[in-house]
Each structure stands twice: as structure tokens, then as C-alpha cells.
Design a protein around this nucleic acid. Sequence first.
DNA 1: AATGAATGAGCTTTCATTCAT
DNA 2: AATGAATGAAAGCTCATTCAT
Lengths: 222, 222, 222, 222
Amino acid sequence: MQTSEARIDAAEAARTALVDSRRRQLLNAAARLLGRAGSQSVSMQNVADEAGVSVGLIYRYFGNKQELVQAVIEDVLHEFSVRVAEPVQDEADPVRRIAAAFAGYCSVVQELRDAAVLAYQESKTLEPEGRETVKDLEVESAEPLMAATREAIHAGLLRDVNPRLFAYDLLTTAHLWALKRWYFSRFMTHGEYVAQHTALSLSSVLRPEHRADYADLLGPLA
Amino acid sequence: MQTSEARIDAAEAARTALVDSRRRQLLNAAARLLGRAGSQSVSMQNVADEAGVSVGLIYRYFGNKQELVQAVIEDVLHEFSVRVAEPVQDEADPVRRIAAAFAGYCSVVQELRDAAVLAYQESKTLEPEGRETVKDLEVESAEPLMAATREAIHAGLLRDVNPRLFAYDLLTTAHLWALKRWYFSRFMTHGEYVAQHTALSLSSVLRPEHRADYADLLGPLA
Amino acid sequence: MQTSEARIDAAEAARTALVDSRRRQLLNAAARLLGRAGSQSVSMQNVADEAGVSVGLIYRYFGNKQELVQAVIEDVLHEFSVRVAEPVQDEADPVRRIAAAFAGYCSVVQELRDAAVLAYQESKTLEPEGRETVKDLEVESAEPLMAATREAIHAGLLRDVNPRLFAYDLLTTAHLWALKRWYFSRFMTHGEYVAQHTALSLSSVLRPEHRADYADLLGPLA
Amino acid sequence: MQTSEARIDAAEAARTALVDSRRRQLLNAAARLLGRAGSQSVSMQNVADEAGVSVGLIYRYFGNKQELVQAVIEDVLHEFSVRVAEPVQDEADPVRRIAAAFAGYCSVVQELRDAAVLAYQESKTLEPEGRETVKDLEVESAEPLMAATREAIHAGLLRDVNPRLFAYDLLTTAHLWALKRWYFSRFMTHGEYVAQHTALSLSSVLRPEHRADYADLLGPLA
DNA sequence: AATGAATGAGCTTTCATTCAT
DNA sequence: AATGAATGAAAGCTCATTCAT
């Protein structure tokens, strides 16, 4: 038997769930629109049409357009963090964990290409506060890489490199495929892009005595 | 004593000079604003105000807003190409030429900070044709680096790396300071950013037998 | 009792009715202004003010200014066709039907004065496609007159005149009151204008042996 | 030997001549523009370009755009009056003089088509005062026809028709070819248009006893 | 909760007009 | 007398936002 509070809680929960699903519906519609027609085409009317609701309804879930755009970006970055955490867990060797994390970033970028470019294009239009949040999320998404790097250095596998620098370079290298695909795709596939950047990065910091252990990752640079 | 033709030529020259200086004035004003905010947030009225002229005047020098944005971007990229060519010439050693070219890119980026971000943020908003021109200019600006890289490989100083990949990575690393300064400046100066990336890049491709020759460039990674 | 479908249909119908009344409101406001001044001198703001709505609203009902002007003209011409068809039906005698049709045109012109001038003044400013539609509508509105004329000729009442020429002359004569009222009203009323042109037109083509039958229409020319 | 006043007069005359030729140059340029690209295209810049002078210069000869447009229209109407007076003089018979005047109007209309339409299209945009002048010029151009009509009536050749009505009808019939050529040219040439309207008009007012004398003008209606 | 008609500020662009040269 | 660079008001149009239903 339900107490009155429990009933209220249940109702509360139901409402929250509804709100969340509406927000999700709208965020997805906006993301779809961005991917299909670019950020130019994101008008409130277009988002409403794409989501199959009315313009007015959007304002029940987002205070204004700014907030919606902000939410879309944060949503994408969140997706990033989540999807990158997985492939890293299985790997015991810290160097191989670096490679796995980088590969993870790259595969998410490849999949969310258009959305990933968004952060670079729209960040200027955000409120300072929102911009900070976006930056925080980006830094956060580099965490797994940074942890693995620190560990690898500590284990004496890598030279004494600044982990924040090294990790962020790898993160941006992953992003770079989205921004500069037009160039790199002229002479290499995304797979080659990932492999060769893995090799170059590790080659720059792997201590000579351990290079042989990671010949498979270094490829021709071994 | 002036002939009548000489007088006409002089008048022509004066007008051309005036036109050029006006274009420059407008390009600079627009670049300042576009660097600060995206082109979506910059109105022609804003540009006019920033340049201290009337809206109407802009249209005497640029057909429409699109053309103005395009011209600003091309102008920045041109500046890039020009300013980067110099520091490279003096260096005979191809590896040191790579370092010099990278340092050159980095110093131009540092100086034109806001403008340098433009190409990344606005290129998606350009007309396809204009986009191609921008891409061509960007690729062109990587030429000195690519030439030095090829030479260094040919001289047996570097491992067998893809020069297009290696050179473009360096180019984008230089650009990256403009995009991610907010992060890197938390723990390093621009000078350190340049030095450490020079070291990392060379470290990844320098053949072991030549590392000693470039200890000054490799720093702690030597 | 209403079924759910019936309720939806009712809502649909209500919306359609609202849309129609809005369109009408805007068309009337625009027609009033366009009749007074040319479309070049009439701004969308003017139309909005005249209709008592906002500029933005006009664009919900008409894609752009061109479309609005086009719609106003077509609306007037449609009104013409509709209002002219009536007075003709009752008349059995084809000659008297010509006179009735002409009188009909003239009375509509008199009533829609300003609007009637529109087609003459704006047709050159329309898109080619729209211009064709306007021409078609104008030709269509001459149909009743042309039919009556053909019949009268076939009945041997009129000389062998080109019906397309004769009918169109009458149509434009009716329109002409709107264009040249400033002149004709100096020395005659609209009623006299109609009577005397009826007389002149019939006088030019009535076979001598039937003139006496239509002395009432020929007046002093009998 | 010149007196001082004579010298001043001569200078005055020279200046007046220069002013006139400049005005002419500009009016012709504007008329050419109208004929080629429609009234939409008449901007001060376009007129200046067409005339091969600067925009500023136009304002030395016309106070503003309004005045220029007005002058163009008046110029065309003046041309009308002048060119119509000639063919009438040779004809002694007043009925044939009517036909000659009508033919004269028609041929001028045919030649100045685009310019003739102008009066109908732009008159709404003129100042009230200018509009009056245009009307006066139009009435004036009907003078020869009216005189001939009066004479023909007085000579007992025509029925007792209102000469102002009859003459103006003919004048507008001439104009009508410019406005409705798109229709009439479907089934007749301009020559046939003139001949058949001459026949119709005369047929409506010629006294029966004189029809035979003008069988050549009446054609099939004889 | 949901709709979408209505608003109006703000954008890009044009062009008549001025005025220093 | 002649130029044309410069101005800025005003146009057409868009779209974030509101609110009666």
C-alpha cells in the first residue's frame, strides 16, 4: 500500500521522466537537424518541426534558444565522455590503455562528426558561463587518457612528458579528423589516421628500451 | 614636367591606393569583430561602426556580407603564408628548418590569435566555392613545412613518415594554440608550448643516431 | 453527439476559415493602398499598418511582396469574372446581351475603381509567370461578351466584325473609365459614359436593317 | 562689333544651349534605360552610367529623381504632340484627317512603345502637380483629332457625336496597342489593328449618305 | 500540457542625395 | 562644371519569443 508521500514521489518521478523524455526528443531533433543541414538551419521552428511538436512547447523545456543550443552541445560532449570510458577499462597495460582511449575518441568522433564540429563553431555564441561548462566537459573527457598517461610515466614506460599536454594533444588529434577530414581523407582512411597517429604519439615518448614491446602499435616507426 | 597621361596614371594610382586602404580598414575592422564573435553575431552595422564608416560604404567594397567574411578569412590566410616564408629561408639544416617553420607558424598564430580562429569557425558557413579557396590557401601555407620534412627524410635524418601527415600535424598544432589557449595557458606559456611541441614532434620521427645532434631542440626528451 | 473525427474536422474548418479571413483582410488592405499608389511606393509596413497587423504576419500568408501584389491583382480579376457573369444570363437577345455585359463590366469598374487600375499599372512589375496568369484571367473575363458577339453575328444582327477585337474593345472601354475618369468626368457622368459607348459600339457594327430595333440603345445615333 | 550686352546675351545663350544639351543627353539616357530594362531599373546611378556622366552631375540639371522622371514623361508626351501634328496637315477632307491623325498616333505609339507605357505606370508616383501637367499634355495631344472631328461634324459628314468623347476614344485606342499588344498581336498585325479600328470608329459615326465616299477606310464594314 | 498565430526588433541590402575635391 | 566616395534612411524579410486558446 502506498503512503501519500510515496504517491507524490511516484507522480513526481513520472513527471520528471516525462520532462526528460521531452528534452531528449528535442535534443535529438536539434542534433539531427545540425547533422543534416548545418547550424545555420537551426531555428526554433525547424527544431519544432523536426521533433513533431509546436514551437511553444520548446519553451516549456528550454528557457530560450541559447539554452537549447547549450544543451545540445553539452549533450554531445556528455555522450563523448560516456562512450569513451568503456573501451579503456579492459586494458591492463597503461600504454595500451592510452592507445585504446585514443582509438575510442577517434571512433566516437567518426560517428558524431557533425555534432563534434558544433562545439568548435558555436562556442563563440554561447554565454560565458555556458562556455565554461563546455570547456569543463571537454577537459573531463580527457580524464581517462590523462590517467593512463600518468600511470605509464610512473611505470617508467614513457619519458618524462607533461601528461596534461600529451593527453590533450591526443584528444584534439582525435577531434581534428572531424575538422580536417577534407584534407587527410585525400591520402588516408580514418583507420590509417588513427593507426599512424597512435604510432607517432607513442614514438615520441616511449622509452627506447620498451619500443620493442609495442612494435605492433608503432608500425613502420618501430 | 608631367605629361597628361602621367597625370592620369597618378590619379589612377591615387584612387587605387585609396580603395586599397579602405578595403584594409574594413577587413581589419571585420577581422577584429569576427575574431571576437562568430559571423552570425556580427552585423554589417557592427562592422561599419567598428570601422567608423557607414553601412552603405561597405557595399562599395564588398558585394555582400558573405564576400566580406570570405575576404577576411582569405586575408588572414594570405598573411599567414607571407609571414611564415621568411624565417625558414636562413636555415640550411632541414630538421632545424622544420623547427624554424613551426616556430614561425606559432608566432604568427600568437600575433593574429582571434583572426586565426576564424578559418576554423567560419569555414562551414562559406559558399562551397569560397570554402575550396580557403582550403587551398591553408594547404598552401603548409608548403614550407612539407618541403623541409621531405628533405629531412631524404637526408636520412627522419624515419620514413608521411610528410603530408607530419607537416599538417605541425600546422594544426600551431593553430591549436589559438583554439585551446584557454586550456594550455593554465600550465604553460606560449614559448613552452612551442618548445615542447617541437621536442615531441621531432622525438617521434628523428632517427636514434641523430637525436644527439638536436639535443637543444629535444630538451628533456633528448 | 460529435465523434472525434468530426471534432477534428470542425477544428480544421475553423482554422481554414480563419486563414481565409486573414488573407481577405490583407488583400483588401493591400488593394486599398495599391489602388492609391503604385506597388513601388507601398511598403509591407504600410500594408501591415493599413490592415492593423504586424509585418511578420503578412509573411505567414504570402511568401513575399511579389506574391501579395500578384494575389491582389488576381483577386480583383476574379471578382470581375464573377460579378460580370450574372447580369448577362437574363437577356435572350444577343445584342441586348452585349449591352448588358458591357454595362456589367462598367458597373464593376465603377465600384472597384482603384483596384481596377491595378492590372494596368502593375502587370509589368510581375514575374513572367504571374503576368501570364493575369493575362489569362483578363481574357477569361471577356468571355461572356465574346460569346454574345459571336451569337449576334451568327444571327445576322451585326456586320461581319472580328468578335475578339470587338469584345476586347468593349472590355477595355469599360476599364478606361477607371484610367481616364479624370478626363471624361469633366463633361459626362459615368452613366452617360456607359450609354454613349454602348451607342457608339453598336452603331459601328449593327446592320442598317436592325438599327431601328435597338433605337433605345443607340440613342441620338439612332 | 558687339556691345557688352550682346556679349552677355551670347554667353547666356551658349550656357542655355549647353544646359539643354545636357538635359537632352540625360533624358535620352533615361528613356533608353526604360526601354531596355523597365522602370524598375531606373536608378540615378544607372542613368548616370548610361549617359556616361557622374551621379552628381544629374543633380545640376534636375533637382531630384522625381523631377527627372517627370521630365522624361513630359519629354515623351511632347514628342507625341510634335510627331502627330505633321501627317494631319496635308489632308483637306476632315474625315480623312481623322483617319490620318489616328494613324499618326498609332505609328508613334508603335515606335515609342515602352516609353508610352511609362505614363500609365509611373503617373501614380508623380507629385499631384506633375500629374496635372502630364494630363494637360495628354489632352493637348488629342487636339488635332478633336479639331478634325468638330470640322467633320460641322460639315455634316458625321452624326452628332460628342467630339471630346470620340477623339479621346481614338487617342486611347492608339495607346491601347502599347498596353494590350500581347493580346491583339495573337490574331492581327499592328497594321490591321489600325485599319480595323479606323473602320469601326468611322462606321459608328459616319452618316449613311457618306459611307460610300469612304469605302476605302471602312473596308469590310463599307 | 500543448498549440501556433501573432509580434516586432533586428538583419542585410539598396539607393537618392550630399559635398569635399 | 564635374566627380564619385560617403551617407543613412528605408526597404524586404526572418525568427526568437509570447500568449490566448
